[in-house]
Design a binder for these strands. Structure first.
Lengths: 122, 122
DNA sequence: TACACATATGAACATTTATTCATATGTTAT
DNA sequence: ATAACATATGAATAAATGTTCATATGTGTA
């Protein structure tokens, strides 16, 4: 029989190393900052957007070209470009009827390179 | 009246810059590699996981400690640790009843620093 | 002005993903 | 062996996200 209906004792007072926990909490960045960080990573965490970034890595492109390159709908691309722009990873300018997109700065490529090197390790 | 029921002409043959498109396609990494890359970013793209990584950045921790630090359920933490481990961002070892987690390598911190610097720019 | 083109956008739908709950696994101590 | 503890895990639920479809906006051109 189970007589212990309070068997979620785990982590109440038992196994937690209080000193360590407090030390870590003291040095943790603000939750808001970590949220912003996660949000930025989230932008990179989608195949379509990563492919767009790699395409733009080579040259600036209009929306049509990107859609053609990825074999996707103009609408889908446009939606994702909006995300990328909100995250300040790409910028755009109008040129007649077209709108030309390009990478915002070279942090993008640095970030991509960093993560790529992690992957290549094994 | 609308006589043109085929007005999705966009990007068919018209505005696409074929030469540019082909050039970009030639240099694009394999889709599979880009998928892997996106998957890795996806792991960073979650508040809980980012907070876990930052906690581990300071010191190795058992699951209970992490749950305590983040103010979350042991189960939730355990699930996320699994993701982090599959992505090879953390490793673990058993120590008695506890399992101690720590960062897998220092690429993690390099990646985080890189993205942080992008955010701090403006 | 009217039309065609390039892009943007809102709503709907489908899919993915994070957390919770209940329970299983594996370790230590009695 | 049994009980208690620390962690892992499967299923269910809820929330977030990507694509599609239809349509709107804005630009150049006849």
């Amino acid at each position: 029989m189970i007589k212990d209906d309070r068997h979620e004792a785990c982590c109440d007072e038992t196994c937690v190393h209080d000193a360590v926990v407090e030390a870590v909490l003291r040095d943790m960045p603000d939750i808001e900052d970590l949220d912003d960080l996660a949000d930025l990573f989230k932008v990179f965490g989608d195949t379509t957007r990563i492919r767009i970034l790699y395409a733009l890595f080579k040259t600036e492109l209009c929306v049509c070209d990107i859609a053609q390159i990825l074999g996707m709908t103009q609408s889908a691309i446009s939606h994702q470009l909006k995300s990328l722009k909100q995250a300040r990873l790409v910028k755009n300018r109008r040129e007649g009827k077209q709108i030309i997109y390009s990478l915002e700065d070279d942090h993008v490529s640095l970030i991509l390179d960093q993560v790529l090197s992690h992957m290549k390790e094994k």
